[in-house]
Amino acid sequence: MTSRGAGQWRIHVVLIVAATLMVVPFGWEILTSFKTSNEVASLPPTLFPAEPTAGGFRTFFDKTPFLAQFLVSAGSLILRVAGQVFVAALAGYAFARLNFPGRRTLFACFLLMLMVPSQLFLLGQFDIMKGLGLLDTLPALAIPGIFSAFGTFLMRQAFLTMPKEYEEAARLDGAGTFRTFWSVMLPMARPMLAALAVLTSLYSWNDLLWPLIVAPAGDARPLPVGLAGLQGQFGTDYPTLMAGALICTLPLVVVFIVLQRQFFAGIANSGLKG
């Protein structure tokens, strides 16, 4: 499509307008976070802060245990991602590569789970966490997300496409099933592992409903729950709210800018379903 260079400016105009609409809310968020609450409530609204202040940020850090909530978010993310990638890769490999009685039936069961919306599991998962005395703890946030029919499905897809020769060579060298999986096949699945890890991270970091159920208050609140609470507390103090929203969003945005390729590969392979 090289011959069309001349007409391209029209496409760019449309795309730039659309991209601007995507970015305006972020710009407004940033500008507001440096204003005073009085300025925010004044009409007509000012574009740039008249007297830029970090007051909103100060209130946010004073009133929110940000570091604790950040560590909860990060900790449950690491647990969930590491656990899910390992568990899903093991099962995905067995389903893709090994022959055993009941393979089709078991995999069909996994696929059925994939079709059930997550709300159907919440009541029972809550009961289990409550029964184990894990409410308001970090493990409660992470444990259900470690097991994923979706992850298993994705890893099976990755292993299905691999050539047989590597496996046979490893076996001739005397490697057992697990050894073959771990040292030969798993490294070759690295792109899909990265995609799954990135998708799971996105899910874990952004999730609101499950943390709201198992850790609505107290020390095990992750950032989304903390931020929602901030809104309840400072309903109209928009500079503080925008500062908080900005700070809580920043870590994942930075990770995204660095790992764009993995994000896009994960989404393109699978859509967004946790």
Binding site: V87, A91, A94, F100, P101, G124, F147, A149
Partner: peptide, 25 residues
Amino acid sequence: RIDWSAYAMIAPAFAGLAALYLWPF
């Protein structure tokens, strides 16, 4: 060839999905 170690490999995923998804459902 049937590979019995497959059951060990799907066991963690199966147990987790049975306990935390199938039963809650």
